[in-house]
Amino acid sequence: MSGLAAFAEALLADDAPCPPGLVTWNGSAPDKRFAVYRNNVIVGLVDALADSFPVTRALVGEEFFHAMAREFLRRSPPRSPVLALYGEGFAEFIAGFPPAAALPYLADMARLELRRVQAWHAADADAITPADIAAVLADAENLPAARFTLHPALFLLVSAHAVVSLWAAHQAESVAAALAAVNPAQAETALLCRRDLEVEIYRIEAGTTAFIGRLQQGQAFGMAVEQALQADDDFDPAAALALLLRAGAITHITIPRRSDP
């Protein structure tokens, strides 16, 4: 093993001894000095996760979160120096982390927070205006064939737990009171999108989820509405479009014109 390989391995291993080949000017044991590097690495990466997953952290408390994050980063150190996006795989790790089993919604909260970070840093794009969409809606004949381009910062997250309500409760002034009103076992779907640099998180119903999901996949408006109605009889396309507009989520609409006979 090369010198740096042993150094790197000892940084991440829990109780590994100091790597060989280190010297000090005063003959002091190098362990305590090496520990500065280990501490920098571990604390730096735990802090990166703590910054990206604040509600996950709040749900379990600082001590638990730090222990869980350390375990994760030892198994899955970042593969890229772009730490802003570190945390891919954290939710899956949490789902299989036995000490977190008592909080079945914790993994989905981590999924939501990772999406939130991704939405925060996603590419910029200008949203269309209500006037733009009015013109599209007025063209009833061609509307079903219209294809929507959605914002790069738009994400959907379907959860068997009340992730949106739990997340929102942690933004409230009195978190405890807000949390008391949440039933964590309630299934919810989150719509995330960025408007004026801020990421907004909306709770959406099954029909809207199907509708936006199909639009995001590039399906035509008519097809997306059909799928949404299959998911939910009460689906209201106008309300769903209004939500997308409010979220700044539509960046372009293409209407294929029928060629004249």
């Binding site: 010198g3 740096l4 390989a5 150094f7 790197a8 940084l11 991440l12 080949g21 590097y37 920098n40 690495v41 730096g44 990466l45 990166a48 150190p77 970042p78 593969r79 890229s80 120096p81 730490l83």
Partner: peptide, 17 residues
């Protein structure tokens, strides 16, 4: 300094001989 090894990014400025 070095900060990556074997594909892992270690997030510190580490020393070399």
């Amino acid at each position: 300094a070095w900060s990556s090894h074997g594909g892992a990014f270690l997030n510190d400025l580490l020393p070399a001989p």
